[in-house]
Design a protein around this nucleic acid. Structure first.
Lengths: 200, 200, 200, 200
DNA sequence: GATGAATGAGATTTCATTCAT
DNA sequence: AATGAATGAAATCTCATTCAT
């Protein structure tokens, strides 16, 4: 029982092993056998579940960007105020990151590996578009500062969150529980004021 | 004389050729002979000036992050208000894209190649430290919100700038002259309010 | 079963192929693919079993000097007279040429390739130490001339044997069966008198 | 004056630098620039005095084996007893080695590098032949043990001297003045008895 | 005489991928 | 499902040699 339900998880074991290795060493720098070693299997088995090293990365993109985009879309579809929507998105993303910062690092950093990949991963663009639309609606309703360019504001917001995560993943920022609380407080305060309505 | 001043530039010829090739194809995707071809010399000559392909990239990082760190240090040493200092840093970083997009592309895209590399580039850390010191002084003078953790605020600020550059590098954000101006206005406004003194 | 015992020999196939190629062309003159060709495999497989070309040579040294040192130790542990022990060592070393001339050729010719290598091969030093201990015990029992410095005597004795092997390896000395017998007789006689008790 | 008489010595500076480097690292392991560095000049200058790296080694052989062979020939041509002739040869060689052990190491070890080289260096064979002829005449006159094969005895004698020198060059044998005296005493005593007339 | 930039043939090494077991 | 031996294309790197200055 355990073994058959476990074996169904082999593919996921490999994916999460790949995420850890990609986050630590980068896609190009790691070898297929690094992924296998991290998962505790032979490198040949990687090819039982994936056609190539490339497909491993592509799968990580596809399976992770999808849910993020959908969640943002759903939040944007509620009747909440723009401020509350942004708070929810920030909370969603930050908590997703607290749970799994390595995945986020890979999603954000390795997307630039190949233009081909970016075009194939429509899920990625969807998430950004949803966030931008949310900000634009907030501006139209006068709840967010209309003087800000929504596109650049989206990227800037995303960058704030990403850079802190990168600092944690690479061990350059302290990541104990209270450090994470302080980071969240700092970043959410910054976000709220950065995007909020202009000074009256 | 002309020839001696020209031959003195061979090393720099190779570095700028490497920047162009890295920007076009990426560090991992290009070969040493691509760099040599771009510079119009044999691949062996690369090894006359640099110990390895890695050292070429490391040199590019070192020689470009140095001036950035110095510029931030210098801005932080003026009598300008904290808000003005932050604006100048944002302007410096964002306009680098227009001045030398290929170098920015390499600095942004390849810095995450390997954490090992980042640790070896002291100039990189210097720039971050200078930025953090600037924010701390602003807090001490009551011009910036002392409730924010200066370390995380530094990373968040850097992330805003970096993500916009990344958007340009990857062609996902429009990067013409007026786009850059609008990006600067947006990011500067966000920064001023995100970091500014707390609401009384 | 046959196949598993055969595949277990791949590493040894490569080692003996390397011995043949090193003996024929010399370590520096041959390429890794020469070894692979001689073994009938691709050159990549060499790196499956050995970390580098250097490690192949190092392994040949280690795995051949080991038995030689053990044999000398064993001879020194018998109740034979010192003269008989010396004769047995000379016979062992000189007959190795007939048994496996290619290995002897490599051991003799390439050992001087680099002092670094010799220091790394502890088995090499072990053989020398065993020989020196044998001579010292002979002196203590009054069977060998105690006036001789045992260290230098060890080197001189080894040199006699090594130079004859070198002569065979380089084709400057005749090496047929009866030549080897004559060499053994000559060297043994020289050794017995050179190291024997001083004239009363 | 000094400079012109000095500059005539540049070629010899390079040769003796090459001897030191070859002795230390071996011919194949060292680079042309190692020779130049050892001599304190640029590597290009090596090609002003020698046509190739190979020619440097060949020159060392030719210029050093010649005098040795001649000296042995001359000693063999005197009316001295065989024992005295052997003593003189041993003394000549040992003292030559004491003066310049590195040259001897190169002469002996690198001769095996290439069969082509050995055939071209007739001077090398001349020295060995002269030594063998000397031993044969000693046997004919009843002054040396006629039971010994003269060819193998020549090689064995040579090997004794060479191995001690090798120990010194590689730092595996102590080489202070009194060590050298003890080595000479040990080796000459061994030689005298090893080659002397058989026990009556 | 002297330098060292420049070349390029050729070597070692890496590693994604295949496939027999 | 799982292993790991085996392949080979393609990359990095070395270094003897040339030659303009």
């Amino acid at each position: 029982m355990a073994s058959s339900s476990r074996s169904a998880g082999r593919r996921d074991d490999l994916l999460s092993a790949a995420v850890r290795v990609f986050a630590r060493k980068g896609y190009h720098t790691c070898r297929v056998s690094d992924i296998a070693d991290e998962a505790g299997v032979s490198h040949g088995l990687v090819y039982h579940y994936f056609a190539s090293k490339d497909e491993v990365l592509e799968t990580i993109f596809r399976e992770n960007w999808g849910p993020i985009g959908e969640a943002i879309l759903q939040i944007g579809g509620t009747d909440d105020s723009a401020a509350e929507q942004l708070r929810k998105v920030a909370s969603l993303v930050l908590h997703a990151w607290r749970r799994d910062p390595e995945t986020v690092r890979v999603l954000v950093r390795e997307i630039s590996r190949s233009p081909v990949l970016q075009e194939r991963i429509g899920e990625f663009q969807t998430a950004f578009d949803a966030l931008e639309a949310m900000i634009e609606r907030g501006q139209e309703r006068g709840e967010l500062d209309a003087a800000l360019d929504p596109r650049f504001a989206t990227y800037a917001m995303w960058g704030m969150l990403d850079e802190v995560l990168t600092g944690w993943v690479l061990g350059r920022l302290p990541g104990a529980d209270d450090d994470v609380d302080r980071a969240e407080a700092t970043v959410t305060a910054m976000l709220r004021r950065a995007l909020g309505p202009g000074v009256a």
